[in-house]
Design a protein around this nucleic acid. Structure first.
Lengths: 202, 202
DNA sequence: GACGCTGTTGATCACCTGGTCAACAGGGAT
DNA sequence: ATCCCTGTTGACCAGGTGATCAACAGCGTC
């Protein structure tokens, strides 16, 4: 007696459900921030009882951390793909423009929430460290290549990467609350970084 | 029949209590972040019934915003005092060192929480904008003076200020979770900013 | 010394959070 | 067709959040 309206309980494999939960958590995080990734919110989006979420991930702390890692990891891979070709200078420019793109606001909000929540969620803090390092490593690799190709001056790649990441994070953080989104801002950052790697002699 | 142990209710003037509440809120924010500034937490620290907090500020949203404003405003004034004398270059150096000082971690945590909470608390968001602008204005004034005194090159003071604030905020945010606190980091930032204002050829 | 203004309280509400656990039920294996 | 493994549920719990309101009680005023 299964009418179309009757709620049929779909029973899925462990892997399917786990993936479904993570996907729901990700979209919630993008829409309302990492703070909104709550047991009940995720359950509601999946269309499932709240208890099931706990059953799969045992701890919300970890689900939040996993959500952050998946989200930011995917973002980094995407930026890496977009800045794969061209000179080191071009790749750096592309990276800065992508990182400061207002379209990325949702991910920025996730970062900001992660910094805040990370102080009370060790698993999340670890994920933040991991992703920050990955980003920094990517920038550092580009700078290093620019130096190797004699495109940049012989600067400290680690320092430049660290400056660039700090700059992008700081400016994005401001934009969450402030929205100063004029497109010129990316160019100002690019000019500063290029000065940093020895392009534009003063 | 008032023994020393009996809890005598101290009745204070409206101004006294208001100040007391704000002070308690500030110290809680410094210790456990802006997220911990809760009706009950503040009431407990003041030694008063939770309802009294609401009675004074009507809305927690505003108390949190006021706490942020008071805290960060005081910090700025303190930094302003510390960087009042000397050449523009020296003042900029002092500002960066003060801003990146690990001893300031507690205030950094407050900033990070404010960015996160600000998305759901309009009053706080306004306070964040206000304080960010004040900081930026201070840096801009120093840069402008350096330009006027022909100490710096004729750069765009607003752009430099914006870069510096972004840099400091971003690096501090990282440090909340990451703690990369090596003292050399401030020097790297200083070098970059000095390059930005036309000191250090190349 | 009694009065009354106003600072203060306790009880209570509605709502949210994460987590636990016995019991239910889909659907593949037999 | 039946069994039973296991995904799934509902009913809870303890704890936290902001907010409201009638009632209480200092303490200055008269």
């Amino acid at each position: 007696m299964e009418t179309a309206a009757s709620r049929r309980i779909e029973r899925k494999t462990r892997e399917e459900r786990a993936a479904e939960i993570l996907t729901a958590a990700r979209s919630i995080a993008l829409e309302d921030g990492l703070v909104a990734v709550t047991q009940r919110a995720v359950a509601a989006r999946v269309g499932v009882a709240p208890a099931l979420i706990t059953h799969y991930r045992s701890s919300m702390e970890h689900l939040v951390a996993d959500t952050f890692g998946a989200l930011v990891g995917a973002e980094l891979r995407q930026v890496q793909d977009a800045t794969r070709s061209g000179s080191a200078r071009q790749r750096l420019q592309g990276l800065v423009r992508a990182a400061l793109d207002p379209a990325r606001d949702d991910v920025t909000a996730v970062w900001v929430d992660a910094w805040s929540l990370g102080r009370r969620n060790p698993a999340l803090a670890a994920a933040v460290r991991e992703q920050a390092d990955a980003w920094r490593g990517h920038v550092e690799a580009i700078v290093r290549e620019g130096i190797r190709a004699a495109e940049f001056a012989d600067v400290d790649a680690a320092d430049v990467a660290w400056l660039l990441i700090g700059l992008v994070d700081g400016l994005n953080a401001q934009s969450v609350v402030h929205d100063r989104h004029d497109p010129a801002s990316a160019e100002v950052v690019i000019a500063a970084i290029e000065r940093e790697v020895g392009l534009h002699g003063t």
